[in-house]
Design a protein around this nucleic acid. Sequence first.
DNA 1: CTGAAAGCGCTAACAT
DNA 2: ATGTTAGCGCTTTCAG
Lengths: 351, 351
Amino acid sequence: MVDSHGSATIKDVAQSAGVSIATVSRVLNHSESVTADTRQRVLQVMEELGYNRNEVARSLKVRQTRTIGIIAPELSNVFFMEVVEAMERILAPKGYSMIIASSNDSVREEKRKLQVLIERNVDGMVVMPAGAEGEHFLTKALANIPLIMVDRRIKGLEVDSVETDNRYGVHQMIHALKSEGFERIGFIGGDPTIHTARERLLGYLEAMAEYGLPVEERFVLKKGAMNQGTGKDLLSRALGEHDHPDAFFIANDSMHLGATAYAMESLAQETLDRLVFASFDYLSYAPLLKLCHYAVAQPLERIGHEVASLMLKRLGGDRLGFPEHVMLRPDIKVMLANGGRPFEQKVMVAD
Amino acid sequence: MVDSHGSATIKDVAQSAGVSIATVSRVLNHSESVTADTRQRVLQVMEELGYNRNEVARSLKVRQTRTIGIIAPELSNVFFMEVVEAMERILAPKGYSMIIASSNDSVREEKRKLQVLIERNVDGMVVMPAGAEGEHFLTKALANIPLIMVDRRIKGLEVDSVETDNRYGVHQMIHALKSEGFERIGFIGGDPTIHTARERLLGYLEAMAEYGLPVEERFVLKKGAMNQGTGKDLLSRALGEHDHPDAFFIANDSMHLGATAYAMESLAQETLDRLVFASFDYLSYAPLLKLCHYAVAQPLERIGHEVASLMLKRLGGDRLGFPEHVMLRPDIKVMLANGGRPFEQKVMVAD
DNA sequence: CTGAAAGCGCTAACAT
DNA sequence: ATGTTAGCGCTTTCAG
């Protein structure tokens, strides 16, 4: 009644119910053509035997695993996991599971994980690329596997992508600061070889030009990893210069955190009172970032939703509009408690 | 040379290389008994054909998927994902992949995901349980699948578990505050039906008794979810009482955040200057929690490491010591910048 | 409505 | 050292 390895199979059920395995398979797949009577009996036996369908065998036969592979540079990245969570909410009810793998910020590792996922016959793949290289996504095996890039697009690579409209976010920040009366706005960001760092720098330069504000090279700081240490270093360097601006746009949450912590513990009250930030990312600890007047909140939930929907569409064989490049507008937050002032969000026409 | 669905199989390779499928399988599995010559030829053909091993077929045959199933109440939980990341670092090199699923904090959903993972033939399962119920983990199918509980243990359930030693952490916090001179210490925590909330409350009561400090019911606050709103509410309630203590132990990061934000924006400088916190969790934004003198940092990396090692052991058929209950001691952080003072950590004997 | 049978791609005896 | 063959558990024609 049970195979030597412990679990009952379709065969055991068939035998026990006095039907053929085909019939058992039919009830498993909710086929119409089974008498309510036999269905009942089969279901009954399954219950008794504690039968569990073997999805692996099914996958082999039908050539699809109902599995989506996911690769990210870091699993502990809050942004990415919120996106994954949103995806799960719409994919799981459709029967999909998600295999998750970390590229550990290395293209080499990304290639390796890609290979693993291909061998596991994932039906689709979602990746937040580790670097700017993307030839490994052109492999023959991937020709039949829908692939969606998240957060970053790799130039020259023809695949679907979903990302935050970084430039839009920066524009609004500059606009907000200008509306509040600031003419001189510094930039604190990371090395432009990083995709988001570059996008935000470009957005800054664009916006400053558009609003006719002066870009002062001395206060456009863009070196290093986008972490707390860099945030602290760059801010202290800027404030070390004579006649520095009071307003700064900061390119991400970690740098913002570093800059704020530095300011709070090392600056004279007078300097502190004048300092104003606008920055990317709005996280749980936003209430503690007291120097921040405006922030850009990435639409994580919506990104997840878009990715999942697009994936479902591709999985269904619909190649319409390929490759689609979805750009989602972030939410703009105004920190009234810190002195931010409501402003009229500039209407921007998408490219 | 290629099957109708696009990808080459072992059969295609065999044919093209002029050998049998068995030989191809042998080179795939690094069998010794293949001439360097034929191996070379087979490898060559694989390359040419862009062959990828079909892990699904392999799994069906060998009855193991090299897959670990993971269920957590929330995927965006930083703590859990850091653990998962650490696990991945040791499991991936051994050929394991991880299927991740969210129970969305619901036992019902947890059951459903459990079933999915069983049907997918995961080799092992790691779960951070959603509730206190655990009968669904007693299902027959799970008898042959190693299961490890993380962060919480379900009473009466005989399974391996790995968790933070919450009581140890609280003890050290109370000890630290006492060493600094505080005799009266309030408690701000969540509803004790939540596992961690209860453990930390119990730890607090234990420690207060042990140090001969008075437990004042008025200042033992333990209602609501462990989030920012509750942190704020409970602190404001405590401070609203006459003759309140200046020192508080706060049971987790969210409540700590809420309490700090509230204090900074609503309290008179005089009150603020006296207020001191010791709390659980030490995250990226710790530099901003200026009222905190001491914190407990959960050993996430080590938890992940322990879980992975234990899993590997069970997967290898080693049932030694089952069920193992690993308790990991958290790290104690002293915030010198905020006024915390180094103290001699109390040596505690494990139960 | 139900059963018989072929076969998904691979591994692992068992032969040779 | 290599080939033959029998399945792993399931789905799916094709008959009846």
